[in-house]
């Protein structure tokens, strides 16, 4: 049984303009110890998936259909209290804006210890602090910074603290949403390296969310490409990179000469992403596709199996 099974998940937001279909019919699996990377432009729904997994959708967001099976249990059917209890203990999250993810008026050490204490009432405060020290060693923050406040930390240290916090309860799954975006390149490399090592060390499953395909390629063994709320291609890293099937994946990859080569930002693809309140009936990438067929704009595309475990949502494949 896979650690995480997401089946036909659709999520939407109530906005002033109407019901925005942020994620539509997304399905994927994640084995224990495996890593999956979601890549796509901002607004494609990858962060929404992360939030839905954690059960942290904003008040105007709702799951329309589908199942999220975590260790075989559907988290969507859990009560708030049950959900609260598995959060962090089973799956933790490294947030997009790590700079602001720490409470400015509490000491960093206490904030991490708090996560430990809330999930294991048998742990004493002192023991929790000992564990925090270990975590600090693990992520490479000097121990004398334990009693500091967040604003006294550098950006990289804050990010390390957030990682330490995510590891605090030894979760099985970590969702890392753009964990290094605000950092400079050197620190970014260090942190990514550390995350990778920690993953191995603790046999963690990781869902890595980024708009930067090179980072995803570097970090994950499975890749999911998202476009306009839909998963358009997914499969093992090698498969997706070596024989991309979906025109959008191809467009993305064309910006990167090599997988491990020099990194640059995503080169914008001409055209605009479709309106998700009233999405097009056919293929959503149609308007920007280099070689659409006549049926593309009228018929919804179907999944096509490219190779075992590698599939794409395109009728031209």
């Amino acid at each position: 049984m896979a650690l995480l099974e997401v089946d036909n998940l659709s999520i939407g937001y109530n906005t002033k303009k109407g019901y925005l279909k942020a994620v539509e019919k997304v399905s994927f699996d994640l084995e224990a110890g495996a890593s999956l990377g979601f890549v796509g432009e901002s607004g494609c729904g990858k962060t929404t998936i992360g939030m839905a997994l954690m059960g942290l959708l904003p008040p105007n967001g709702s799951v329309k259909e589908g199942r999220i099976l975590f260790e075989g249990k559907n988290t969507l059917e859990m009560t708030d209290e049950e959900l609260r209890k598995i959060r962090w203990r089973e799956m933790a999250m490294i947030f997009q804006a790590a700079m602001n993810a720490l409470n400015p008026v509490q000491r960093v050490g206490n904030q991490i210890a708090e996560a430990i204490l809330v999930h294991d009432p048998s742990v004493e405060k002192d023991q929790a602090m000992d564990q925090v020290e270990n975590l600090f060693r693990l992520v490479g923050i000097p121990l004398d910074r334990l009693r500091d406040y967040p604003h006294q930390y550098s950006g990289g240290m804050k990010q390390r603290a957030v990682i330490a916090m995510a590891l605090a309860c030894r979760p099985k799954l970590i969702i890392a949403d753009e964990p290094t975006t605000a950092l400079d390149v050197i620190v970014q490399d260090q942190i990514l390296g550390e995350i990778k090592e920690l993953q191995k060390e603790f046999d963690l499953s990781i869902i890595f969310i980024s708009h930067d395909i090179s980072i995803v390629a570097h970090m994950c063994d499975h890749i999911g490409v998202m476009y306009a709320g839909q998963l358009v291609e997914c499969g093992p890293r090698e498969g997706v990179f070596e024989s991309p099937a979906h025109p959008y994946t191809k467009a993305l990859l064309s910006s990167f000469p090599t997988v491990t080569g020099k990194r640059s930002d995503l080169i914008p693809i001409p055209g605009e992403t479709p309106n998700l309140v009233v999405p097009p009936h056919g293929c959503r990438f149609c308007d920007r596709c280099s070689g659409p067929e006549a049926s593309c704009s009228t018929e919804p595309p179907q999944w096509v199996e490219i190779a075992p475990g590698h599939r794409a949502l395109c009728c031209r494949c």
């Binding site: 999520i11 839905a52 059960g55 942290l56 904003p58 709702s62 799951v63 329309k64 988290t75 708030d80």
Partner: peptide, 10 residues
């Protein structure tokens, strides 16, 4: 159809 509100803790 299920509302995300139910799981939202706000």
């Amino acid at each position: 159809m299920r509302k995300g509100n139910a799981m939202s803790v706000m």
